[in-house]
């Protein structure tokens, strides 16, 4: 975050369809009114999106990932991304999807990028990794101390299954138990297991500390499962979640709720200020949400293979009204 020093210029505002909603000030204008500018800081994290193929079609998915998607990062692009990571030495590499496990290059990516990443995270899809025929991926993750980050919206089967699909809670619990048995989420093993809870509807997330306390107690009591940290994030009004908001008549009230919850103090810690996101084709974005909108890094289309250095600190980040999801309450860091 910085105090605003220059007029809003080249960064495109992708909020067109939201800007006209009654009572919603465009995000860019809200920043101006608070004397803020959303600009890049020191980039420390490389987020690699392996593609949109997923075994679920979650109703809150901003990428509209699902079983029918064919976009997958190929080996050549993986090599280009790894080469970039080798050149720039990010502190954290964060692998996501879709379901990363459904990309046959996931193992290769972990093997080749692990030596370049002090902290390697996998947004694990619990049901997809459970469907693997071998323990190859799990063994690889353990050997490389890959941090597992799993979506686990609710301890209620009706709410989890409503968001992610029938039977997902039970299958997720089974996989979490297996991860615990391998040492993930257990003190002293060095194997970190974190959970992410998104609201199962058009409401704001629970305060993280309260949610973590409740999940820890419920998961232990119901299934004997332990984990390290729980993160709560607001659903972002893009993709399939946006469609659901419109179809269910919740869009206006949800956008009002998000914009009313704008916390100027959250802007400094936004993940887009320190993260670089790369899509399945190898192109670069400021965050996974701008990736889903096709709004490139600082508004310019660049491939990882041609990127020289890290994005310059101070570069303005393209915004849209979906950014309200990251600045509501304590924010999305």
């Amino acid at each position: 975050m910085s105090q605003k020093t220059a007029p809003l210029a080249t960064a495109p505002d992708v909020s067109a369809e939201f800007s006209q909603r009654p009572g919603i000030l465009p995000f860019a204008q809200t920043l101006v009114e608070h004397g803020l500018d959303l600009i890049r800081g020191e980039t420390t994290t490389l987020q690699i999106n392996l593609g949109f193929l997923c075994n679920h079609a979650c109703r809150h998915c901003h990428l509209e990932a699902g079983p029918g998607r064919t976009e997958l990062m190929n080996r050549k692009t993986v090599d280009a991304v790894v080469a970039y990571a080798r050149r720039e030495r990010f502190q954290t590499v964060d692998i996501t999807g879709g379901a990363p496990e459904l990309n046959p290059n996931l193992g290769y990516l972990i093997e080749t990028i692990a030596p370049e990443a002090p902290r390697l995270m996998l947004r694990v899809n619990l049901t997809a990794i459970a469907q693997q025929n071998t323990n190859y991926l799990l063994d690889l993750c353990m050997a490389n101390r890959v941090v597992m980050v799993a979506s686990f919206p609710s301890v209620s089967s009706s709410q989890t299954d409503a968001q992610r699909g029938t039977g997902v809670l039970d299958r997720s619990v089974t996989m979490l138990a297996k991860l615990n048995a391998l040492g993930y989420g257990k003190n002293g093993t060095g194997l970190e297991l974190n959970l992410v809870s998104n609201p199962t509807g058009a409401f704001l997330p629970v305060a993280q500390s309260q949610a973590e306390k409740k999940f820890r107690s419920d998961l232990e009591r119901k299934w004997g499962i332990s984990f390290n940290n729980l993160f709560t994030f607001a659903n972002v009004p893009l993709g399939r979640f946006l469609t659901w908001l419109i179809d269910s008549g919740n869009l206006d009230s949800y956008m009002k709720k998000l914009s009313a919850g704008f916390n100027p103090c959250a802007v400094a810690g936004l993940m887009c200020r320190t993260l670089l996101s790369v899509n399945w084709e190898g192109y670069l974005f400021d965050c996974d949400f701008n990736l889903s909108r096709g709004v490139y890094l600082a508004g310019h289309k660049r491939h990882a293979s041609e990127m020289e250095g890290l994005p310059r600190p101070g570069t303005r980040i393209p915004t849209g009204n979906h950014c309200y999801a990251c600045t509501a309450g304590s924010g999305f860091s």
Binding site: S156, S158, Q159, F203, L204, P205, V206, Q210, K214
Partner: peptide, 12 residues
Amino acid sequence: TQTCLEKGASLG
């Protein structure tokens, strides 16, 4: 109802 959901109460 909204507060319960935002405070993490389940439908159950």
